[in-house]
């Protein structure tokens, strides 16, 4: 009489054995009532285990904080937000802007193509003296490309002594299917504080285009 170890029997029930090994189990089952019973019981257990986990599929979940613009619901705030957001008017404004189509709301000279670093987490390397803008954009692209909403990154330009902070606020999708992310950037440039919020949309392969920048102060 052939006997099989637990792992083999379980693998048989889960359809993980190759044809030859499965045939050996089936052959043995014909003459071994206990083995046959065990296989049937394991198969029945599959249904029981599925039923046991099933209720979790019906947990009430909060609304998604990421949304496609095609959905008719309003965009919802991320769990981790930067403090002091006046979310209601802002959200409405964003929503209208999105509905109008992004192309119509480009502000100022902010149509900048940003290229992500090819290696994750590795900033772009410039041999010449870096401008604050370059350092900030490198930090921004890294953040947009690699970090989840709610993440904050600091940048510091050793060449000028200036620094700043950028936070990715949320992610959404336009009606055209493009992925965009809202960000807030604060900086201290030569002792002058500035706060900027903007949207960056991902073109293909790690290229981001800022679509809107609003200077708050």
């Amino acid at each position: 009489m052939t006997s099989f170890d637990d792992a083999t029997l379980v693998a048989y029930v889960d359809d993980e054995l190759d044809a030859e090994a499965a045939a050996a189990v089936e052959e043995a089952m014909k003459s071994d009532a206990g083995l046959d019973r065990m296989v049937r019981a394991l198969r029945a257990d599959t249904d029981l285990v599925r039923a046991a986990f099933e209720p979790m599929l019906h947990h009430q979940l909060p609304p998604l904080r990421i949304e496609g613009e095609g959905a008719r619901t309003t965009m919802l705030p991320a769990a981790q937000r930067p403090p002091q957001r006046t979310s209601v008017p802002r959200r409405a404004a964003w929503h209208m802007a999105m509905a109008a189509g992004l192309a119509g709301i480009i502000f100022g000279a902010s149509m900048v193509h940003l290229t992500a670093p090819t290696v994750e987490g590795q900033p772009q390397i410039h041999q010449a003296v870096k401008t604050d803008r370059q350092v900030e954009m490198a930090a921004l692209v890294n953040l947009l490309e690699n970090q989840l909403s709610g993440t904050t990154a600091d940048w510091h330009n050793d060449d000028t002594g200036n620094s700043g902070t950028i936070t990715v606020v949320r992610t959404f999708q336009t009606a055209q299917g493009q992925y965009c992310r809202e960000f807030t950037a604060t900086s201290m440039l030569d002792n002058v504080p500035a706060t900027v919020t903007g949207i960056a949309c991902r073109e293909d392969q790690a290229q981001w285009r800022t679509r809107r920048r609003v200077v708050e102060s």
Binding site: S3, F4, D5, D6, T8, L9, D32, A33, G34, L35, R37, M38
Partner: peptide
């Protein structure tokens, strides 16, 4: 019933 499926086989 049985004891056919002894752990680890034989």
């Amino acid at each position: 019933t049985g004891g056919m499926i002894a752990a680890g086989g034989c």
